[in-house]
Amino acid sequence: MTKKIIKPVVSAHEAVQCVKKGDTIMVGGFNYGGIPYTLVDALYEAGTDELTMIANDTAYENVGHGKLVAAGRIKKVIASHVGLNKKTGEYYNSGKMELELSPQGTFVERIRAGGFGLGGFLTPTGVGTIVEEGKQVLEVNGRKYILELPLRADVALVRAYKADRMGNLIYKGTNRNFNPAMATAADIVIAEVDSVVDVGELDPDVIVTQGILIDMLVVKGGSYYASRT
């Protein structure tokens, strides 16, 4: 579906209507930084469940998308680190939730591959460990690599600093993390931003995410973390 040139600026509640039961979602963020808090809170309130969630980590039990895990809305997590949210380990160990762990560099590269049209990539990370189980190991120029496959989602929830009306995004500090990659790898991409400015106000040299990737914009709300990050 062709995306609109001028992106609708909608409420978080309207935006998350496009996430359906059973969907695969991507959620940006590393630890408490760069999470689209307002979108995730709206999705929590919407109650949508049976979701597969691709996120670097599962935040904390009561913070950001960690709440989706704690509330049992997630049937599978694909992440690199889940130690900060006790519920993730608990639900995984009890068989209530599936968990697929990828090394962090592999995790982001799988998303990049999904967004940039690659069928996979070869990485030395994880060779000789259980990460290689069930995967092809190829030798190139005498070194072993694991063939890792791409990740894509139905909807990506990303966090940026500013957007222009065409959806071009710039980021702030370490909030950038997984957000630019995720913006390339989902059918629908919703960006939560501090503010939306007129087209032409963002310097073309500093735009990180191209507006053609974005479907909707949401201005961040006033929750504790949304307002501080």
């Binding site: 980590d57 992440a79 690199s80 680190h81 889940v82 130690g83 993730t88 380990g89 995984y92 160990n93 968990l99 762990l101 090394p103 962090q104 560099g105 592999t106 030395p124 990370t125 994880g126 060779v127 460990t129 990460v131």
Partner: peptide
């Protein structure tokens, strides 16, 4: 195994790279 499953985070990439 059987106790904590924190995940490898960036450690596997760091020690290889």
């Amino acid at each position: 195994p059987g106790k904590s499953v924190p995940g490898m985070g960036g450690a596997m990439d760091l020690v290889v790279g």
